[in-house]
Amino acid sequence: MHEVQKNDRSLWEVVGDYFRANSIWMKWYCTGCGAIEMPPTMTSRFDMEQLGMGPMATPRQADVLLITGYLSTKTLRRVIYSYEQMQDPKYVVGFGSCTLNGGIYYDSYATINQLDKYLPVDLYIAGCMPRPEAIMNSFGELIEMIKKGEAKGWKHYKENHEWYKANQMDSLGEVIIHDEFHE
């Protein structure tokens, strides 16, 4: 597994990163309990729009994929599908300890334990579940990272595609399609 080393960005990328840092559109995948912390973060108490952030309807439009909590293997396939439909540059934020190390579901047969084996996570937010303050704080962090060009998980995913795919296949296995509704 090789690391992404280069950090000399072209001017186009520097300017682009400035825009991308100040306008973060999210696609959040409400996989687990954490999703409930998003509404207060969006509405008048914390108001994430002041950072230029907002929810978006489809992965095509979004910049950030938010995995809000535990991820069952069944959902993982959908999450990967969505991630691959997003436009570069794209970022992944793992939300809560479940994405970090499995959390209280660490020994479940149905969930994955470590999100970054399957998708390139740029930022984790620890906590079970993280409160809006923590979320706002970490988004501040994410913005800084994007501005500096440090959030390059998407490049990492491209360059280590086989490694990610192998991990994904490992946990998902191959699917045989019978008809439209049965796999």
């Binding site: 995948y29 992965p59 959908r78 399609i177 439209e180 796999e183």
Partner: peptide, 15 residues
Amino acid sequence: MDTYTSAEFIHTPEL
């Protein structure tokens, strides 16, 4: 067929 489908897998174009 690579379109947004709410992350559902659909294999039949007619549908």
